[in-house]
């Protein structure tokens, strides 16, 4: 029999998983991507004075977002909060991630792991409620401060932007720990021993061995924490109230209180664009840092 097959490539019949992908892909497209595209179109619609959506296309909503300090300012505020939260999370996550990746005590590891995960698996409302109680006038912080004689009357901690900041750090810290410990765990113990053997102190080993090798994990942690904190709204709302200039809160207010959905949509896409841009820059910086070190 003559060769009847033609074609330039041999097909591997081992093409795995592409059939399995069909249903979940359809789900994500229908339940997530299409609504998101609908939202994008909505952000381009004009509205009348009663906030009714009209047909046609306009960039007016975006002009409004960039032209109103009430809206654009909230994006800047969110950016500033997200930067502080990301840096704080990285610093706080390091000891936990290091412990999870390096400790030889399995009991200790299990304990730290459960403690790390517990906020992640606890509803945001429960955690926010907890911070409300912690920082309330008769809560543990004020009671402790008064008992120590540091303050005479209880501080209005709930209205402090620092309380919101702490609560957001608390919400996102587990993500940073998990991302970091994955890359710290991948560092070969022998490298650390080699560094110590070559006479490097702990600090030097950390700077010249651990930090460079952990760069991918640091970038991943920063990107996750940053993007999640950019849109956060439940925690700030419940801890600090509705009168804060944060983009997530403004989106929620515009949509659910002012019923101006197109404007809320436009603001959310501006927020998403800024978030993606910063994450892209962080990723690029991480890659450059790695390449620079290799060169």
């Amino acid at each position: 029999m003559a060769a009847t097959r033609t074609g330039s490539r041999s097909r591997s019949r081992d093409l795995r998983g592409h059939v399995a992908a069909i249903v979940p892909t359809a789900f994500v497209v229908v339940a997530f991507l299409l609504p998101l595209i609908g939202l994008l179109l909505l952000s381009l619609r004009p509205t009348d004075t009663m906030n009714n959506v009209l047909p046609g296309f306009t960039g007016a909503q975006y002009a409004e977002v960039f032209g109103t300090s009430y809206l654009w300012g909230s994006v800047v505020e969110s950016l500033w909060l997200a930067v502080r939260v990301s840096l704080t999370c990285l610093v706080l996550a390091f000891p936990l991630a290091w412990y999870l990746a390096r400790s030889t005590s399995s009991v200790g590891k299990s304990l730290v792991f459960v403690i790390t995960l517990s906020p992640l698996l606890t509803s945001e409302v429960v955690r926010s409620f907890g911070w409300r109680v912690v920082m309330s006038g008769e809560g543990p912080v004020n009671v402790t401060l008064q008992a120590l004689g540091l303050v005479d009357e209880s501080l209005p901690l709930l209205r402090s932007p620092w309380t919101v900041f702490l609560a957001v750090v608390h919400v996102l810290l587990p993500f940073a720990v998990l991302a970091l410990s994955a890359s710290l765990g991948a560092i070969d113990n022998r490298l650390l021993q080699a560094s110590a053997d070559l006479g490097a102190g702990a600090l030097r080993t950390f700077r010249s061995v651990v930090l460079p090798l952990a760069t991918p994990g640091i970038v991943a942690a920063a990107v996750i924490v940053f993007s999640l904190s950019m849109g956060v709204y439940v925690t700030p709302l419940l801890v600090g109230g509705a009168n804060q200039s944060l983009a997530g809160l403004r989106i929620q207010t515009e949509a659910m209180v002012a019923f101006d959905q197109p404007r809320a949509a436009a603001l959310s896409f501006v927020l998403l664009a800024v978030t993606l841009a910063v994450c892209g820059l962080v990723g690029l910086a991480g890659r450059l840092a790695e390449r620079g070190r290799r060169a």
Partner: peptide, 12 residues
């Protein structure tokens, strides 16, 4: 075993 289909040719 049938995991790769050849570009040309036959297996009998």
């Amino acid at each position: 075993a049938g995991f790769v289909t050849p570009t040309t040719g036959t297996v009998l």
